[in-house]
Nucleic acid binder design. Structure first.
Lengths: 336, 336
DNA sequence: TTGAAAGCGCTACCAC
DNA sequence: GTGGTAGCGCTTTCAA
């Protein structure tokens, strides 16, 4: 099927292309009967405006790139859904770009922006350095959501990770745990760093002991956290609680604990982070910190749209978090 | 930063835009010293080709839409990763389109194809009817991957769901189970239908009893499967095994079983489908059917590229599946 | 090996 | 209200 062009529609309707364009764009100064006959021709010819022409003319695609490490991340999935909804409201489409932490792949996606195939980028994670991000932000509309670099003149939407971690660990203290361990990742991203800080501060403010042996470093993911937990359990003085920086890592810690013949939370209470879909369905269900994915995604999109529109503001916004108590720390909790 | 155009590069290099274009496209008939001076100008001006002009001229975007219900599906995530890799090989970018089973949202994405913002579509799922899909396939390059309608002249890449389900249920029979139940969904998609058929055939060929009470209908997801399992357990003659059409539903069935004070797999063995990331880490780990996500994704992309190139073939290909035995049916299994 | 120029489909300015 | 038309940035044909 050959697609009709605006010229053919104009001819069929006996008007100029300018008029057809006006009808397409709901320009009100078109006589009713003209509009009707144009719409009729559009119908008859099964005409679809070719966005390629439009994009070139307007120098925009109304397309937003969302850059993340992987789409298999339920926390990100919730943010994305909100970004999509908000984007639709503003007439933007979203293109998800999974980099798998490969700088080459991320670079290729950045080209899409530089080559005008996209109007802006929302970074959920990145392989860029702070300097690279800063330079990109000087030339193009971008925003950081969740993870971020500070002080590089790029807008930020996130959560107060330090306070959230503090809250999680304080919960473990509140249920009477005395030796609280931390399973984390040895990277340098802001959320990891701040969660460690929050953990340390919570120990201090609750007068609980800290020792190097209480902090285990793993890679992301279940298997590595399982091994880290084995390590924690190998010391003479075992922890009676664990705060992991992600839910999957909490699951790994739980499985390891159970495999060693210990009880969760009886012997060891475990808390995760992000309130991903695995937490309510794991066995036992997992206590975790929930973030405001919906608000964060929508805000990120909204701020980006304003930047595209020329705004010079560089907002830095934190959104709410909340503790969700489940079986892995308190089997008597009321369902949330 | 104002972006230079091809015209400015031409001027700076003292050549015509045609020559710059040739350099950009690696046209070999450019004198070496001309090429060097053009490349130099490109450097100096920090020039980026504007794809909007190129796309219009070429009437293509080298963009592929992948339509799916939700990105929070680990099985789909694996296919997508493969699609992306294969796409990159052919110079295509992927745009993930999550419809959340909303016809309006899907329609909006189809517009992107019809408006030439994308060169083709890979459907991992759809809200279209068979007829709608057929008509779309007449006018545009599309392919179905995983789920599909048959006989509508649209290429298909999938797995033999009937045989795979048969294999899963036969495994349950092989470990000595006599009353094997099935948790499924009451929809009309092909994978669901064929898995039910495979289940039924496996019962018959293993001389196991079938009754309506053995088949429980749920919606997708953990919670609904939990309820379905409660229902199965409410009958006088309880099942001693369950085959669920998805891993999450298998997890729901397991949790329900354990909450009732029964053992998995001691009292009830449970098998799922898709080998998603939850299966090895659930407690107990879940026996499941694995599909060839990587091969399927790559094949889908390759076939689509051929269609875009004008191929008239309508391939229908099945890929391998395999049973992965874990604790939920056989705690003595060797790790896979 | 290079350049001039047409034209992809559209929008928006200017004239009427 | 409507039409003519320039021009967005690029590729490609044709001529030189």
């Amino acid at each position: 099927m050959l697609i009709a062009t605006i010229k053919e529609v104009a001819k069929a309707a006996g008007v100029s292309v300018a008029t057809v364009s006006r009808v397409l764009n709901n320009d009100r100064k078109v006589a009713d009967r003209t509009r009707v006959s144009v719409e009729d021709a559009i119908q008859r010819l099964n005409y679809r405006p070719n966005l390629l022409g439009r994009n070139l003319r307007l120098q925009q695609t109304r397309m937003i790139l969302v850059i993340l490490s992987s789409i298999s991340n339920n926390f990100h999935a919730k943010i994305i859904r909100s970004i999509e909804n908000e984007g639709r409201l503003h007439g933007y489409n979203i293109m998800l770009c999974a980099t798998h932490d490969d700088r080459k792949i991320e670079a290729a996606y950045l080209e899409l922006l530089k080559n005008k195939m996209a109007d802006g980028i929302i970074f959920l994670s990145t392989t860029l350095t702070a300097l690279e991000m800063k330079e990109l932000g000087r030339d193009y509309p971008i925003i950081q959501c969740g993870e971020y670099y500070e002080g590089i003149d790029v807008p930020i939407v996130s959560v107060d990770n330090e306070m959230a971690a503090f809250t999680a660990v304080s919960h473990l203290a509140a249920i009477g745990r005395k030796r609280i361990a931390h399973i984390t990742v040895s990277n340098d991203i802001i959320s990891t760093r701040l969660r460690l800080s929050g953990y340390m501060r919570a120990l201090k403010e609750n007068n609980l002991p800290y020792s190097e042996h209480l902090v285990a470093y793993a890679r992301y993911g279940y298997g590595s956290a399982y091994a880290a937990m084995e390590n924690l359990l190998s010391h003479d003085t075992k922890p009676d609680a664990v705060f992991a920086i992600s839910d999957r890592m909490a699951a790994g810690a739980i499985k390891c604990t159970i495999d060693k013949g210990l009880q969760v939370p009886g012997d060891i209470a475990v808390a995760g982070f992000d309130n991903t879909d695995i937490t309510p369905i794991y066995n036992p269900s997992i206590t975790t910190m929930s973030q405001s994915e919906q608000d964060m995604g929508a805000a990120a999109m909204r701020i980006l749209v304003e930047r595209i529109g020329g705004s010079e503001e560089i907002p830095f916004r934190f959104f709410k978090y909340s503790l969700i108590v489940r079986d892995s720390t308190d089997p008597t909790h009321t369902e949330q």
